[in-house]
Each structure stands twice: as C-alpha cells, then as structure tokens.
Amino acid sequence: MKRVLTAAAAMTLTLSLGASALAYSGTITLNGTKLDTSKLPDAPAGAVIPLRTVAEADYGFADWYADENRSYFSLDGNSIYVDCATGAIEVNGEKLANTKATFVNGITFVPASVLGKLDGYTAQVKGSDVTVTTPNADALVSLARSIISKVDMAATMKLDAAGMAESYNIPSDCFTEAVGFFPMMVSADTVIIGKVADGKMDDAKAALEAQRALTQQNFEQYLPEPLERAKNGQVVTSGDYIMLIISGDNDTAIQMFKDGVK
C-alpha cells in the first residue's frame, strides 16, 4: 500500500483531544542537553513528551501516513505508531493498553511511560520538567553519531559488540565496549569505534581490516563510488581505542575520533 505524506496531513493533526495556545511551560533535557521548546504548545496533563521533538533530537525521525491516518516515529531502531483518530499507541508492534496520545496544535504528545517501553530509554518527570536519557548518551555512540553527521555518512544501522559479532563475525571479545554503524542502502559507509580489551589490539585491528576488505569485496565489479570508498577505508587507533572508517571524508572523521577519545 502506497504511503503518501501530504501538506494536508498537518491540518488533520490539529483535530485534537484538547488545544492550547500557551507556550510549553516546562523544560525537556535530552542526554544532558536542553531542547528548544519555544515553538511548542504547552503539554496537556498526563502526556508531557512531544514525540517528534524528542525523536528528531535523538537522531530519529517522524512521518505521517495519510492512507492509514497514523503517525510514525523512529527512535534508535524502535518504532512507535500513533493513531491520529483515536490516540492509540503501538510500540514495536505492541498496542499499549490504557495509554493514549494527545494532539495539541498538530503536535503529538505522549505519556512519559511510552519512552520507558523502549530499551535503554528513561523519562523522568518532575513538575513541568522532563529529563530523557537514551542509548545515544553513551560516549562511543555519541562520538560515532557526531562523525556520521559531520561527514554526511549513509550509515544508520546501529549494532553493539554482540550484534557485530552475530552479523559481521567481528569478535566481541576484542572489545570492552564497541558500537558500529552500517549502511542500510547501497553504500559502503561504515564506522566502528571500540575500546580494545587488554592484549587484543592486534586481533581488533585484524578484525576491522577484514571488515573493510569484505566491504570492498562486496562492491567489486558492482558500483565504482562505494568501491573506492571501501578501498580507501582506514583502521586507526588512539590509545586503547580503535576505529574503522569508510566515508567520503576520512581525514575529518579520524581527527574527530582522536579528539573524542582523548
């Protein structure tokens, strides 16, 4: 079924369960950073999270499906659907009982408990102030995402050490912590950053170089641009940390990596 996003979508969202002309009266702090709430209406009682604002600030996105009359929000691999007619909420395929969204001036607000349904997310409410913590607060994840944003990489699939071991045969015992971002389209863009376990630096270098070589092999006799990126990919180290970078601007990425793990 074709999903179409139209300008009229925003108008339908103004059909709300209560409206407010007041500006957002509290604060939203996401991973230690206060979000700009100046353009938000005040939150309705019991539904204090402006879902699109939080999703987009946390490297996610939002959309609206006209044919289904549902909003969609992606947060770190999690999916949230909101029925724009009833306010019903579905999180990762589970319909939430006794939990509704509220629409105010086209903004979708949900209870803080909805974020608590997402792995690694917490939302604490104190008066009119909300503090949200997400998996993107992790130092290595934040560094990798900063690199992706700065050098405009098409790497959106996030995996931890266990996930990389399962999907790419990168041994998890090489690291005490690690994160990798991989492409979900026809692209070679990849960034893996890890803190190397004692005595495992040579193994970690070999594993990441093998991943670079595999990426190159995947594009042999296929597409020249991602092939060249894979050929030029680099494995670099700084102290106990290591990175594989395949991007259009490796020099910038490498400098950010070295600055970020000092």
Rank of each mutant, 00 (worst) to 15 (best):
A10F: 11
K34P: 00
I193G: 03
G180Y: 02
I245N: 12
M256F: 08
A23Y: 01
D76N: 13
L17S: 14
C84T: 13
V54E: 00
Q124Y: 07
M185Y: 09
K100T: 15
D76I: 11
V196S: 04
N31T: 11
P226D: 05
Y168S: 06
P171S: 11
M243D: 03
D42F: 02
G93F: 09
C84L: 11
P44S: 09
Q211N: 12
A178G: 05
A45L: 13
M1Q: 12
C174N: 15
A165R: 04
V196H: 04
T86F: 05
D36S: 12
V179L: 02
E225G: 00
G26T: 11
M164C: 12
A112K: 13
S247L: 08
T99N: 04
I80R: 04
L115Q: 01
V141Q: 03
I107L: 02
Q217I: 06
T37S: 09
T190F: 05
R3D: 12
P135I: 06
L15T: 14
A9C: 13
Q124T: 15
N105F: 02
G116D: 14
D58R: 03
E166W: 01
T215K: 05
F181L: 15
I193E: 04
P171L: 07
K150L: 06
F181P: 00
T237P: 01
T134G: 04
F73I: 11
E225V: 12
A85T: 14
R52L: 09
P226W: 01
P226I: 06
A43D: 07
D63T: 14
L223P: 00
G127N: 06
F103N: 03
A112Q: 13
S142V: 08
D83C: 03
M11W: 01
N69G: 04
A43P: 03
G106M: 06
E166A: 15
N250Y: 03
N78T: 10
G60H: 08
S247E: 07
L227S: 03
C174R: 04
S79Q: 13
C174I: 02
Y72D: 00
R70I: 09
N105K: 14
A97W: 06
F103L: 14
N31C: 07
V125Q: 10
G93D: 11
P41R: 05
D240R: 09
A23N: 11
M157L: 14
A10D: 10
G26N: 09
G120N: 10
G60Y: 07
L140T: 10
A123Q: 07
A155F: 07
D240K: 14
A55P: 00
